[in-house]
């Protein structure tokens, strides 16, 4: 099965990268952007069959390595074979 992990900065944490991108967009004339924050997506192919079990392991991966729990939050999405992505 496939999985997608979204990692983003917690609300209130300063995001210099997001600020820089917003400023660059403004420079190109996109003045409607009021706020912009940058996160990251990890796409994975898993050798697993039980979605609940897989989700548990993915969350563990996030806590231990993929996200920094002090500054970041994460969501895990499982893409079951042939199915639509399901938000954890």
């Amino acid at each position: 099965m496939r999985a997608r992990v979204f990692v983003r900065l917690k609300r209130g944490i300063l995001d210099p990268q997001g600020t820089a991108v917003k400023r660059a967009l403004e420079g190109l004339g996109y003045r409607e952007v009021q706020d912009l924050r940058v996160g990251r997506v990890l796409e994975m192919e898993l050798d697993a069959t039980q979605p609940d079990q897989a989700r548990g392991r993915l969350e563990e991966m996030c806590r231990r390595l993929l996200a920094n729990p002090v500054t970041e939050e994460f969501t895990v999405e499982i893409v079951e074979d042939g199915g639509r992505p399901r938000l954890a």
């Binding site: 917690k10 209130g12 995001d15 210099p16 600020t19 500054t71």
Partner: peptide, 15 residues
Amino acid sequence: AEERRPTVQVGDPFT
């Protein structure tokens, strides 16, 4: 609740 919690300081060396 959550959003009022103080957060870790993040540096921005270019600023």
